[in-house]
Amino acid sequence: MDISTHTPTAPPPSPRPGQAENRTVRGATRPGDRIFLGLSRGSGIALLLIMASIAVFLTYRAFKVLPEDTGNFFTTFEWNTNVTPPDFGIAVLVFGTVVSSIIAMALAVPVAVGIALFLTHYAPRRLSGPIAYVIDLLAAVPSIVYGLWGALILVPNLDGLYGWLDDYLGWTGIFDWQGGAPRSLLTVGILLAIMILPIITNVSREVFRQVPRMHEEAALALGATRWEVVRMSVLPFGRSGVISASMLGLGRALGETIAVATVLSPTFEIKASLLDPGGGTFAQNIASKFGEATEQGRDALIASGLVLFVITLLVNGAARLIIARRAEYSGANA
């Protein structure tokens, strides 16, 4: 949405247009107004209630089973919930979730920034419009389709890459490959990277497009090359925007369920090598253990879901803080 072109004659919309009239209506006690205000405030409160009850119900179910857990919930490398007493812990899930998300971010962010720059500053104009449009649409492709593609097309084609990594980087231990099917955390990371690429690209592109033209023209007038323009005026302006775009992508990567479940060979252990099958993520574990779970097992899965919920809350909270800071510094919002 390019705000400025829509309303050329109107004054720039104030952040809260309704506030001006609020004072005048304050005293109004017309029943219609009161009902309408009640309805809309009620909706807002309902939203808060939903968030609160998510936390409450998940916590309630989680604490039905946590006292029974014979293992330590944070350090146990087991997920054995259908026996009495159960023995389970989220250590492997935390590791797998964090590692696969980090891989996804490391792969997706540079490429996404590259595409965004390509579309805004490098591509021929006739090309950039349609491509931007297509990438927009790709952001809407359902994750199950990525999962299907990942399992049936991506995994069988990764042997070459894995062999190469093992040959040349195997000595690090991280890229050591025992020759199993390439259904490891690295594959998950690659697939997640492909999934979040369109989202990060879209948001970054919006940010780069808002770079004040004056900054760029000034740099060009001083004889800067295109790369110098990008490095000195576009990237600094867009940095926080890119960070919040990345956070958005990170949120998606952390919670992705089905695409991970289709390409990962999960085991409850932590391996040094990212190429050997194994590990697991919160969401994938919930999806794959749910079937055989008894009531106690379900509560244990809900407990792990609660942890995922908290993690995503933290990530989103951080993203919001960054966006808020950006609003303060950005020239466009001054």
């Binding site: 997920w79 054995n80 259908n82 026996v83 199993g180 099917a181 259904r183 479940a261 060979s265 999960p266 085991t267 252990e269 099958p277 194994g278 794959s288 055989e292």
Partner: peptide, 21 residues
């Protein structure tokens, strides 16, 4: 037991997933 206890090896979901692999 119903859950696989040994370490190592690879895994898949359901008999169908195993057959697939």
């Amino acid at each position: 037991g119903k859950s696989w206890k040994a370490k190592g090896g690879q895994s898949a979901q359901g008999s169908s997933g195993l057959a697939q692999q």
